[in-house]
């Protein structure tokens, strides 16, 4: 933490949105994990905190709470970076799961039962090979394009579930649909994602 002193007055601002490069983010995360690299952390912070803030707002937090939770998400990244092993999951997935669990804990005041994917229970190496990084990058691109190609009605329920944090029955109520229809749209959406990444698994 001492080495952060030189960054005391660096303002943190939002950067351009979307398409975070998973490879370079994984690299930054690795630098934080290995040497507590504050410069790498600053870049991660600038890249992710504004998006975590948006996520928390969409989940129902007011702006101040969202900002606090974004900070705390990134603090957790700083503290737990050593646990992250660059596994098959991208840095973005790891950070998403941290934000998700924090939301369950703070916004819903429930106990998160979801574990953070730390890579220890998978056959991935701590130091991902270029091939592993490539397939992470491919998978992330394919998941994104599969989502982009979903029919609007399927995309809508997926977004309500992941980003607005609604349960199936809440989605059914919001959209005035039978519960079974909500569930089948979720399943259909996931099938398309699964097909898109089948050969990478």
């Amino acid at each position: 933490m001492v080495q952060l002193a030189s960054y005391t007055h660096v303002p943190v601002s939002a950067c351009a949105h979307g398409m975070t490069s998973s490879t370079s983010m994984a690299d930054l995360l690795q630098r934080v994990a290995e040497s507590g690299d504050a410069e790498a952390f600053l870049k991660l912070f600038q890249s992710y905190a504004p998006r975590v803030k948006s996520y928390m707002i969409r989940q129902g937090a007011d702006a101040n709470t969202a900002e606090e939770l974004a900070q705390e998400t990134l603090m957790t990244v700083w503290r737990k970076a050593a646990l992250y092993s660059g596994e098959k999951g991208s840095a973005t997935t790891w950070i998403f799961t941290i934000a998700r669990n924090l939301r369950i804990d703070r916004l819903r005041r429930e106990t998160p039962w979801q574990e953070l994917p730390d890579g220890h229970d998978e056959e991935a190496s701590a130091d991902p090979s270029p091939e592993e990084l490539l397939s992470q990058k491919q998978r992330s691109a394919r998941v994104k394009s599969a989502l982009a190609e979903l029919p609007a009605d399927q995309h809508e329920v997926v977004l309500l579930s992941y980003i607005e944090g609604l349960s199936h029955s809440e989605i059914a109520e919001r959209l005035q649909l039978p519960l079974g229809t909500v569930k089948s749209r979720m399943r259909l959406a996931y099938q398309k994602v699964r097909e898109a990444v089948e050969d990478l698994r």
Binding site: R51, S90, T92, K144, L147, V158
Partner: peptide
């Protein structure tokens, strides 16, 4: 990973 992709698009 689906969640991460949606999150990244915010």
């Amino acid at each position: 990973h689906v969640g991460a992709a949606l999150f990244d698009g915010l």
